[in-house]
Design a protein around this nucleic acid. Structure first.
Lengths: 189, 189
DNA sequence: ATTTTAAACTAACAATTGTTAGTTTTGTGA
DNA sequence: TCACAAAACTAACAATTGTTAGTTTAAAAT
């Protein structure tokens, strides 16, 4: 995440603080200090605290939904599509290591944007569900409750932001590979 | 979670609110209103807001760590132990549907209790890791990076609190069964 | 060099925060 | 019935919150 303008620096720094303490616990004075400025000065660049949250969350949420849409309607076998979903998650998380925390934990503090966000999330989950359904129809996936499959995979992927930073060593392609294997083929021999 | 005393009612109601909005965003006046009392009255039962968080989190955290310790050092095959870990997670989450949210998202707002909590969590993860290691040593588990296995399973389990309430229909034993299968054997045929 | 614009500052606001002090009500056992 | 303890209340506090107004400094454009 290359930072070009001051406004972007504010968004980025905010997302970092949001991850550490959560949106509500981060004050505008905290943020200002981290940026190296007085609280009031922030308002030369942004219009409200919530605007920051909105920007951080929606940017990522839109990428996710757009991405899975392309995967779902794209070419390729179901197994490959599932691998692509895992890969997209790893990549987006690696690109937005901080923002993912707000996406997961702070979306309820969105005001006007909350319904927008929930709509995107529902759409995302629906696309994912359809991919799984098709896999079951084709007889490629086991006959396990769809919701269990969906939330099992999604559960792991949603937590990626917590340990991707810690596992910087494990390179990205290896992670995509082994995580995909774990989630799709299981861990038992 | 049967509530017996007013104090327990406060803890329980608080954990419910904490799940909805997060610890920081819940005010003592919010909590008081939900309990049907004025904010100051809460202090006849508790000594601080943080005490509530501490109680909610530590009760559950201790159950987890104690539980996995028994599993790890108990009898039985590794595969069964892994299933037991999944089962314990489902059961504890079902028994503490709200508190799990704080355990996951609000522990950083613990003051004196934070290091205690982190110690419990590390111990938990370490026991889990050892079970996985033994599985690999015995040749029962695939040769996938331990950390990937650990956090993949744990990632899913940590999110259980978000959808167990929504899937009240899927009965508990079925959930343990299908979730265990998904996590351990994978979803591909 | 001068004007204009962008971005920092200081000071303050009204509202909200967790918490305390002191008082009144409620319920229980003697 | 009375006394006592538990638990509610009102009122207020000091600190902190997001935000605004007005001003000064720095940078860019003319």
């Amino acid at each position: 995440m290359k930072v070009r303008t001051r406004k972007q620096e504010i968004f980025y720094t905010a997302s970092r603080l949001f991850k550490e303490k959560g949106y509500t616990a981060v004050t505008m004075r905290d943020l200002a200090a981290a940026v190296g400025v007085k609280a009031a000065s922030l308002y030369n660049h942004i219009s409200s605290k919530e605007e920051i949250l909105y920007e951080v969350i929606m940017t990522i949420a839109e990428s996710f939904t757009k991405g899975i849409e392309e995967i779902r309607f794209g070419e390729g076998a179901i197994k490959d599509k599932l691998s692509l979903v895992v890969a997209q998650h790893v990549n987006l998380t690696a690109n937005h290591p901080y923002g993912m925390a707000s996406l997961n934990n702070d979306w309820m503090h969105l005001d006007s944007g909350k319904s927008q966000y929930l709509k995107l999330r529902n759409t995302y989950e629906q696309h994912f569900r359809e991919i799984i359904k098709e896999g079951k129809t084709q007889g490629i996936l086991k006959d396990i409750d769809e919701e269990v499959i969906l939330f099992s995979i999604l559960g792991t992927l949603r937590n990626l932001y917590l340990w991707i930073p810690k596992k910087a060593d494990l390179d990205r392609d290896k992670l995509i590979e082994s995580l995909g294997q774990t989630l799709l083929e299981g861990i038992e021999k």
